[in-house]
Design a protein around this nucleic acid. Structure first.
Lengths: 108, 108
DNA sequence: ATTTAATATCGTAATATTGCAATATAAAGA
DNA sequence: TCTTTATATTGCAATATTACGATATTAAAT
């Protein structure tokens, strides 16, 4: 016990859960909002912006990248990060569909 | 260490992260989708639907309720659960704003 | 009053996440 | 080449999550 029973759920359910999980930490939300503000930036900029050590920021960036929420392009010495729109679209579409369905329903 | 540094982030950032975190598990996504299909149901229905024990389902329902994603109304013996639209709206609005901002940006 | 049914809570083991110091890697500049 | 700069990885401690058996709670049914 302790491990999520991933294999019992559909690919789509796991996909949405994985993306949501990546956004389930305030530091990662802060990183997304910072990227939104500055368009593109390097890891060091985020380290200066957030109250977290460089390895911690690097780890959060990795998780956001694994979930497809950001992209990282090597630019010589540093890595240029920016938001990956596609995955946010996937989420928005998913929630839009939920809301459309729910508005036709009656709650208990 | 090990605990999230919640106090260093804004209320809005923590709010979005909390909601996203609640959706960051395939079982909870499956519960949302089941509720979407059947409109309303009781805990026992979900226990029959998912490959998880009753206490586990109860715990997942509690987290979804704490995040404001579902509502639970006592109906005599059992509890009637249904989706709470408001919180999904909050998420959708948040992602819509992100996408609107990103589409005017150029990635690296 | 007792039993049954539906959920919640407690306790606990297994696993995952968070955060960071120390260290590694890799490219640019002197 | 040696140093500097930028980022990633490793290893580990603290904490959180996941899952479930056992048990408690609460209301309906008999």
């Amino acid at each position: 016990m302790g491990a999520t029973k991933t294999e019992h759920f559909t690919d789509k359910q796991n996909q949405i859960a994985t993306i949501a999980k990546a956004l389930g930490h305030p530091a990662r939300i802060a990183i997304i909002e910072y990227l939104l503000k500055v368009n593109t930036c390097i890891c060091g900029d985020i380290v200066n912006e957030l109250p977290l050590a460089q390895p911690t920021v690097s780890q959060h960036l990795k998780e956001l990248k694994n979930a497809g929420l950001i992209k990282g392009n090597i630019e010589g010495n540093s890595i240029c990060y920016c938001i990956d729109e596609k995955t946010f679209d996937t989420l928005k579409e998913y929630f839009s569909k939920i809301i459309l369905t729910v508005t036709n329903q009656k709650c208990c």
